[in-house]
């Protein structure tokens, strides 16, 4: 089985109506073969006393509540939340960099906690509120104070880590509305920036905190 198969191809095209490179690739159905060639029962049937349903390995219905909207997908259990967002819902704000829970670019907020979307199976995120960067940018045409503070503090260079940082800051400020610089530093310990924009990011977090508390920006 090839390495790219973590992308899961036995899927429908949910959500998106327009035509993108992604939906084109989905449309030509790059495989389906990976799924079809798998044996049906991978393991012995669960013992009788086990009431838990065994799902997959092929596509199964997965329902995700993202930025307040419910999306119904048909995806394999192995699809991560990150791949579901990016490849199935065209929510490409969360970035895929390490894909091993060690960089932070895919940070989203699940049930109020910052999480790495690459480290969570989409099927495990069912029934929980998922917030992505898209939800911060589109509320009534006015950006949320966190991304605004990033812009004002020039808190990015190449920008690849930025969506993850913005979500990490949002999650942190939701729980620590009045932080010190030291707390901000530790609160953002799960995100890396190769360009080294930490100073701007931390200041943006402090500015956004003030704004969110109803204060004026410095």
């Amino acid at each position: 089985m090839s390495k790219i198969d973590s992308e899961d191809h036995g899927k429908k095209h949910p959500g998106k109506k327009g035509f993108s490179r992604r939906s084109f690739l989905q449309g030509i159905g790059i495989s389906g073969g990976a799924v079809a060639s798998l044996p049906k029962g991978l393991l012995a049937e669960p013992q009788a006393e086990s009431g838990a349903r065994v799902m997959g390995p092929g596509p199964v219905p997965v329902s995700l509540r993202i930025n307040g909207k419910v999306h119904n997908l048909n995806i394999e259990p192995r699809v991560t939340l990150l791949d579901a967002l990016r490849n199935h819902l065209d929510l490409t704000g969360a970035k895929k960099v390490c894909d091993r829970s060690v960089c932070g670019t895919c940070t989203v907020i699940v049930a109020g906690h910052p999480v790495y979307a690459c480290g969570l199976l989409a099927i495990e995120a069912q029934g929980k509120d998922i917030q992505t960067i898209e939800g911060l940018l589109s509320t009534h045409g006015k950006a949320h104070p966190v991304p605004t503070a990033f812009v004002e503090n020039d808190a990015q260079q190449c920008g690849f880590c930025t969506p993850g940082f913005v979500m990490a800051v949002k999650a942190f400020l939701d729980k620590h509305p009045n932080p010190t610089m030291e707390q901000v530093k530790q609160g953002l310990g799960g995100n890396l920036c190769r360009c080294g924009t930490y100073i701007g990011v931390r200041q943006a977090a402090l500015d956004a905190a003030r704004e969110m508390r109803g204060g004026k920006r410095a």
Binding site: A44, P46, Q47, E49, G51, A52, M55, G56, P77, I123
Partner: peptide, 20 residues
């Protein structure tokens, strides 16, 4: 990642029945 079957038991007893 290789495809896999997924189960989410609600109790330990259910979980034991699913292990190899």
């Amino acid at each position: 990642m290789q495809a896999f079957e997924y189960a989410k038991p609600a109790t330990l007893k259910e979980a034991f029945g699913l292990l190899g």
